[in-house]
Design a protein around this nucleic acid. Sequence first.
RNA 1: AGAGGAGUGGCAGAGUGGUCGAAUGCGGCGGUCUUGAAAACCGUUGUACCGCAAGGUACCGGGGGUUCGAAUCCCUCCUCCUCUGCCA
Length: 423
Amino acid sequence: MLEITRIRNDFDNVVKALKKRGLSGIEKKLNDLIASDNLRKSQKTEIDKIFNESNNLSKKIGIAYKSGETGEIESLKNKSQELKEKSKKIAGSLKNTESEINEILLALPNTPDNRVPEGKSDKDNKVIHTSDSSEVNKDLKPHWDLIKEFNIIDFETGNTITGAGFPLYTGDGAILQRALINYFLDFAREEGYTEVQPPILINEISALNTGNLPDKEGQMYKIENENLYLIPTAEVPVTNIYNKKIIESNLLPIKNAAYTPCFRKEAGSWGSHVRGLNRLHQFDKVEIVQIQSKNDSEDALNGMCDHVQKLIESLEIPFRKILLCAGDLGFTSSITYDFEVYAPGQDRWLECSSVSNFLTYQSNRMNLKIKDGKSKELAHTLNGSALALPRILASIIENNQGENSITIPKVLHKYTGFKMISR
RNA sequence: AGAGGAGUGGCAGAGUGGUCGAAUGCGGCGGUCUUGAAAACCGUUGUACCGCAAGGUACCGGGGGUUCGAAUCCCUCCUCCUCUGCCA
């Protein structure tokens, strides 16, 4: 979440940045926040004074007992008792004030970077780069037809096992899936990422730390009795590796990569445009996460974008890179680049990666710091998909379809063991 | 899952009601000595909040309680270890 000192010191810019997201009443909200924080400070000072007094009294009582001068003990006790009553009242108010502050802070999204374009929806996103792609061939089929014809993904059986959005990958389809995962992980390792295998169930605190709660409550599957959530992305468990950690600056950058399945309810986001692999409740993804210092996080962001771009290019599918506008920007992010691959069978761009810099937004919730000599400061956290599988798969299938086969990108051959999928 | 045991500073480990934020050892940092290093010796070494500062407050797994006073007593939750059970 946003740092309250920053809101105080850089008020106008914070307001301006949050307004960019289309939030209304921000000025008042932030003024209320500062007022509450002032109240908090005075309450804290008040209660500290009382504690100080009663601590002194207790010491006196202790000394009196030891020395046997028990005469004034009773009156000291009474005095202390009075202070206690008083402190209870103030402690209650202080607690209220603190939870008010917390509530406001939790509900505030990150401030968009200056480079983030104004805008309300994905229509206002800025295309930064588009790879050369061949013109649309009207005869190309969408992947939902091809996967049936080539018998590589079975949605119907997935429906009976679980429900809509839980596909069953079969035969060469399953192998291709595994090949992509292994390729992505190997690629990340070559780029200096340490592979981790995190839990795919997370508790409330972890979800809160990365900002998935309270913002995305309705989007995550919850195990009610256990108070656990299925991860919507590996970002949550992998970033939370560093919860409450203080990292020596010479250990930077921290670079982790993880493959996990991801689970999303996608409530309300179904429609005719989301067929086949375009949107699922369960999908596979390799995620890269970095922890960086303030000064180096921008370079890290660029490095992660390069990583994603190289990966897509190596698969030889058309893609474009997009800078998200303020209205489309994720709650916790300050700047996000999306990568979309082209699916010619449906003449549609499909998002397959999102690379973001969260600055201190997550580290402030986690209390994740970097220590350089004596000084400590909040870390910057970043992450990106590298890559989300289903839409990559869709794009590969649609781009590489032939009359009787689907060609597998060269870089995957050593992982699949075959060069094409035949009928 | 049942029974028993345990959770203290970076680590190890004392402390079972009163100046305990906490002995001691190791590690870390600074220094003396040395051509340099090691050893030895001296000093220093947790986090957060309030305060311009002096200083104050909170924190001994988390939360709650008893008490004038809690690391220490009580309740509860979590985690770990041992044994039994079950399973991959």
